[in-house]
Design a protein around this nucleic acid. Structure first.
Lengths: 147, 147
DNA sequence: GATACTCGCGATACCAAGTATCATTATGAT
DNA sequence: ATCATAATGATACTTGGTATCGCGAGTATC
């Protein structure tokens, strides 16, 4: 155990590790703390570079673990690249600015029943969906001409 | 020009090439015909392997061209892999069976206004969205117990 | 049909993101 | 303190795609 008060994300991750019978290692503290430091989305490789003391493979392994545990989610950028991002638990989507790349969570998805019906029309039993919304945030928009 | 009657996809692609001042080359015929042969989604590399006479880079270049022209679209599989697929023109989504991987087009997207509103709540001007729906097709579903 | 201009091709090398392998080490249970 | 083994780090590999560049094939012009 490390002394100082940690970011809540780090603490919950460690709790989940202990609860799940995973070992709490130095590398895991380091990765969790690095993830907690991120603002917005980040690439796994970039995170690895922030952690010269931790092997690249280990960074990838632990990000994957955090994705599986729901602490981190994947974000699909407009150009098709995949990034990671601290996740609100539960189902949600992202609003991604196509200019500055900033991404915001879109909580409370109400598409499920709509899509369920559409899927049923095709004789599919819907199990889930993935949605990313692209747009331009206030800061990246030329001041719209008011009336 | 090649003699035989071609698949409509191939013909429209060639038309668009000519219209856009692109050259109509042997490699482009080959790629277009190979794409037209595909059922469901396919990987660019797999297509390249079907075309030993055509360079890998050329296959990728021409798939990209067909994506830009709207003849082919990208499909995001449940596990995060990207595939290509013959596209219905215009905005649409996919219904992907998480069991057999089969994908069907979901035409007529009516989410735009909903999402536009949700984005506006976050002070974003929505420009587009990407949606994939995952489920289980009739064939991959254990016969549901009728009442 | 011959000429020339240049786009597109193929080979190759490269890149980015992620996974497999495996000997070594540190963790947590006893 | 000991021990079994999960996790690590180094490295090689894989997958999917892009950049480079000399060469050859398309197309327009004569």
């Amino acid at each position: 155990m490390i002394a100082k008060k940690q970011h809540p994300l780090v603490e919950s991750f460690v709790d989940r590790l202990e609860a799940g019978g995973h070992r709490v290692t130095g590398a895991r503290w380091a990765v969790a703390r690095a993830v907690a430091r991120q603002r917005g989305h980040f690439a796994a490789d970039a995170l690895a570079q922030e952690l010269p003391g931790v092997g690249r493979a280990t960074v990838f392994r632990n990000i994957k673990l955090m994705v599986e545990m729901g602490f981190v989610c994947r974000v699909l950028l407009g150009d098709g690249r995949l990034r990671y991002q601290i996740s609100h638990r539960g189902h949600h989507h992202h609003l991604i600015c196509s200019d500055c790349g900033r991404s915001e969570d879109l909580l409370g998805c109400d598409l499920d029943s709509i899509l369920q019906d559409r899927a049923a029309d095709h004789d599919f039993a819907m199990e889930g969906h993935w949605l990313e919304v692209y747009g331009r945030c206030r800061a990246c928009r030329p001041q719209e001409a008011a009336a």
